[in-house]
Design a protein around this nucleic acid. Sequence first.
DNA 1: CCTTGTAAAATGTCTGACATTAGCTAGTAT
DNA 2: ATACTAGCTAATGTCAGACATTTTACAAGG
Lengths: 249, 249
Amino acid sequence: MLDDLALPADGGAPALAAVLARAILSGRLPAGSDFPREKDLCERFAVSRNRVRNALASLAATGLVERTAGRGSRVREVTDWHLLDPLMSDWLAGLERPDPRLVREIYAFRLSAEPQVAELAALAADGRDLARLENAFAGMRDTAGPGLHQQHAEHDVAFHDGVYQATHNLVWRQMGHLLRPSIIALIQRSQHHADSLEDSLERHRRVMEAIRLRQPEAARRAALAVLERTATDLGLLPDSPLPTEGHPI
Amino acid sequence: MLDDLALPADGGAPALAAVLARAILSGRLPAGSDFPREKDLCERFAVSRNRVRNALASLAATGLVERTAGRGSRVREVTDWHLLDPLMSDWLAGLERPDPRLVREIYAFRLSAEPQVAELAALAADGRDLARLENAFAGMRDTAGPGLHQQHAEHDVAFHDGVYQATHNLVWRQMGHLLRPSIIALIQRSQHHADSLEDSLERHRRVMEAIRLRQPEAARRAALAVLERTATDLGLLPDSPLPTEGHPI
DNA sequence: CCTTGTAAAATGTCTGACATTAGCTAGTAT
DNA sequence: ATACTAGCTAATGTCAGACATTTTACAAGG
């Protein structure tokens, strides 16, 4: 178990946590199963028990495992994972092949939340918020060529995060963390045709413009349009019922 | 600094973290200020460095402090706090006098999110979800008398959490954690007149009924009505601009 | 003035031992 | 036969001390 995993050259404490977390997130360890003991992990990765315990503490803090003295560590249900923890976002974004169900759940959330977020942003955004959006948009436009998918995705994340930031609400702002894994999954799946990119850019521009002009209703519609574009790029069939019923995309 | 804090009789590792966290959450330590050194905390609370380090690791994981080797620990900005972390929810719910700005921010979030959540719940709720809602509602009704505020609040939390659960979305479900600190703050501030309680119950009932009847639009309106009731009980003026500046509490 | 070296202070890590808890097993009394 | 208890084992939790690493401040020298 975990035999094919390797610790990166860095090898710091967070690196070990990331390796162990991805073993769970990739789905190779079923919920309810026993997680390896501390001693085994020490031998397997040739690190001290201290580091192993720190890594396991991170996994427990994000709800990936449950630890009980004398019993051991056990993998928890997906419903217990703290998807909104920034650590979790990093781990998810680094996955080679993220669980399609998770991608779907996060997308469904964004579909139901982001129009509202855009509406709030249109009501509250100030100059700095607009500057962030403009910068991110320019970055997306300048990296629209082939071979720049990675950088394009980063600017894409920055754009959407900018919308969350512009709400000026402490809770909504925290949720921008979800964007990275969602958008990374996007570029890993879609082939990003040139015309698709052009269309996506235009839809983003309309969100930015509506926020600038303080038009909440237009911002809501524009955000929805961006997400519809995202759905087709993700290969999610619009008419298949996602987690919830009937979003007539 | 922190002289008047005491470790509860339990004294476990999480207890120490809670004490330290509340020192920050109560606002006595300004953002950017230095947090006490590990050695000082060891002496102050008469615990080993190990426990202190575990507690500080929790504070760092929730974004309350930033730790750098050789430098020390520093209190982070409110905008960096992970309000959606379950640990944070527990700490916030245990505060005697939570920061009014935080209460307002969380309320503003709920006001913008919960109608949508109720709508999704109306589309996706199954029998188990309805049973949870009915149980919670019955609990609220049975604890409507005086002197039962604490238990009433718990059932209130269970009701709203049930709505989040009923969305059957992994992300929305995580957000139910925010409810406890929000509702605890509610009962600590409002005097809960008998007629106010009666009105609140009726509004909750309409949410439950709309979810049962699969009426998304009615659920949205009913959830909004509950939150308006909450606003007056919290002493928040409904027409003042919420998410942005101006906290005339 | 800038650079560099050095020392101090703080957190990070390692090690070994012991404490505590959960679960199992065997034994015993009713 | 069942139920309860004692004890054993294995796992995580805690402690104590030493050392490593990083940051910062300060002072000497160019």
